[in-house]
Structure formats: structure tokens, C-alpha cells
């Protein structure tokens, strides 16, 4: 026993150092993830305006939510956004990644250029696009009128505002997905294309029948990530349209924010947050079912 003691002390020392190393993350997790999560879960069953005391209302928030047309509209708005944004994002990212994976000139420059919007602040990008989209002075409309075409009310039409935001969001985020797809493309063994070429597959057939199925895990990842990111649509409508015109760009996230910090309905906002999380989870599960193939089993 006496001989073992120093070994145990060594081990304990190692353990302590290990805990010390993960401590910053654990603190971060407790303060910014665990605490808010638990607190908002408590909020769900209360009415609270931040300053006053909390008032227990049971499932009252959910009852309100069920009959709140604006909540459902905001979900529908988000869905409209996603229906345009996700396919567009994947298509553009995949095509760009495929091009950037070829031996083209200035490849490094283009790779960096497409990634740039991802790192630029969302507010900056949004203000920039607000200018581009402006009905009277925007660059896009100026160009259109130069070409003799009529001006398009990009952000002021209830039908066009959300698609406009979806296009902008795609431009902003596509670089990130390009990087993911690039990594996927580079993991496809070159031999597969050589065999396919000898087998008689054209370049397009190679892309559709070899590339896409082989990088399916990346496609799944991109679909899920862009769905989750898409559901958290906030900065763009907040800065560009404040949810207008006529609430046509009011995303669920923006609605939650407004209820919480404009009307101080913290309990109600928290309830919507949980419902939204459940919606996201179910959408992602369905997506996985549809998109994921058992490539490697």
C-alpha cells in the first residue's frame, strides 16, 4: 500500500490539471447554455415582464400561442425563407465548390473571396444589401432601369421581400458551405473518376452518379446546418425590414425577439423558443430520413 501512494498522487495531480483545462469551457457552458436553458424552461410556465414578479400560469403560454395568428405567420414566413434559401444555398455552394476544386487560375483568391462574406459582420452585409435592394436608389434597380426594365420593389413588396432576403442570406453564408463541400469533394478518391471515365461516364454523369452520392454525408450535414441556421433568421429582417412590409418578413426568431424585448412577454417568448426548437428538430429528422443514404454500409 505504501508503494502505491505516490502513484495515486500522480494520478490525482493529472486529474486536477485535466479539470483545470476544461474549467473555462465548463464555466462558459454553465453560464451561457445551461443556465439560460433551465431558466427559460421555468419561464415557459410563467408570465414575467422582467421587472415584476413571475406569475405561474401553467400551460397558458401555449394556449395563447395556439391562437396567435402572428406566430403561425412567422413560422410560415420562415418556411418561405427556407424553401428558397436551402436549395439555392446547396446548389450554389456545390457548383462553386466543384469549380474551385478544379485547377483554375487564382484559385486561392477565389476561395478566399467567396468565404469573405461569412466573416464580415451580418449587420454590415445587411446594410450593404439594403442599399443594393433599395427601390429608388439601389444599384440593382438602377441597372435594371438603365436596361429599360421597370424597377422591382425588392424589399417593399410583401411577395418579394422574403425571397430577396433569402437571396442575400445565401450570398452571405454560401462561402461556409463551399468550404464544407470542398472538403467533401477532395475526399473523393481520384481513381473513382478514372474508373468511371473508363466505364463510359460523362463529366455530368460522374458528378451526379459518383460525386453526389459519395459526398452524401456532407450534403446531409449542409442541409441540417443550413436548416438550423435558416430557422434562426434574425439580423437580416431586423435590420432591413423590421419584419415588414405587413409582417411578411417577420421570422419566428424576430417575433420571439420582439415579444421578449419590445413587449416584455418573457414567458411567452420562451414558450415560442421551445416550440421552435421542437419544430427544427422534427424538420431535421425528416430531412435526414429523406436525404441520408447508407453510403458506407
Amino acid at each position: 500500500m505504501e508503494q502505491r501512494t505516490p502513484i495515486q498522487t500522480e494520478k490525482e495531480k493529472g486529474d486536477r490539471a485535466g479539470y483545470l483545462f476544461v474549467l473555462p469551457y465548463i464555466i462558459f457552458f454553465l453560464v451561457f447554455t445551461a443556465y439560460p436553458l433551465i431558466f427559460s424552461f421555468i419561464l415557459v410556465f410563467h408570465r414575467w415582464n422582467i421587472v415584476g414578479p413571475m406569475q405561474w400560469i401553467g400551460l397558458g403560454n401555449f394556449a395563447t400561442l395556439l391562437h396567435d395568428p402572428l406566430f403561425w405567420k412567422s413560422l410560415w414566413n420562415t418556411a418561405r425563407f427556407l424553401i428558397i434559401h436551402i436549395p439555392l444555398q446547396i446548389a450554389v455552394a456545390l457548383v462553386l465548390a466543384e469549380i474551385l476544386n478544379q485547377h483554375i487560375r487564382f484559385r486561392g483568391f477565389f476561395r478566399a473571396a467567396f468565404f469573405l462574406p461569412v466573416v464580415i459582420s451580418g449587420v454590415v452585409v445587411t446594410i450593404l444589401w439594403q442599399q443594393l435592394y433599395s427601390t429608388d436608389t439601389g444599384l440593382i434597380n438602377l441597372s435594371l432601369s438603365k436596361l429599360g426594365l421597370s424597377r422591382v420593389p425588392w424589399l417593399t413588396s410583401t411577395t418579394l421581400a422574403m425571397p430577396s432576403i433569402a437571396i442575400m442570406a445565401t450570398w452571405k453564408n454560401v462561402g461556409f458551405y463551399v468550404v464544407l463541400f470542398l472538403a467533401g469533394l477532395q475526399s473523393v478518391p481520384r481513381n473513382l473518376y478514372e474508373v468511371a471515365e473508363l466505364d463510359g461516364a460523362s463529366k455530368i454523369q460522374q458528378f451526379l452518379k459518383i460525386t453526389i452520392p459519395v459526398i452524401n454525408p456532407v450534403v446531409v450535414l449542409v442541409v441540417i446546418l443550413s436548416t438550423i441556421n435558416g430557422f434562426s433568421l434574425f439580423i437580416e429582417p431586423y435590420v432591413m425590414t423590421s419584419g415588414g412590409p405587413l409582417n411578411s418578413t417577420l421570422s419566428t426568431f424576430l417575433y420571439i425577439y420582439k415579444e421578449a424585448f419590445s413587449f416584455y412577454k418573457m414567458g411567452y417568448a420562451a414558450s415560442m423558443g421551445f416550440v421552435l426548437a421542437a419544430v427544427i428538430l422534427s424538420v431535421v429528422l425528416v430531412q435526414r430520413k429523406i436525404v441520408e443514404t447508407d453510403t458506407y454500409t
Binding site: P189, N191, L192, E194, V195, A196, L198, I210, P213, V214, N216, T293, T295, Y296
Partner: peptide, 14 residues
């Protein structure tokens, strides 16, 4: 011409 590669180069998803 048909070619057989060292690393087999089988289509993994098929």
C-alpha cells in the same frame, strides 16, 4: 479498355 486499380476504386455507394 478496362482497368483494375491497386486500391480497387469500387464505387462505395453502390
Amino acid at each position: 479498355i478496362a482497368m483494375v486499380f491497386q486500391n480497387y476504386a469500387l464505387y462505395p455507394h453502390m
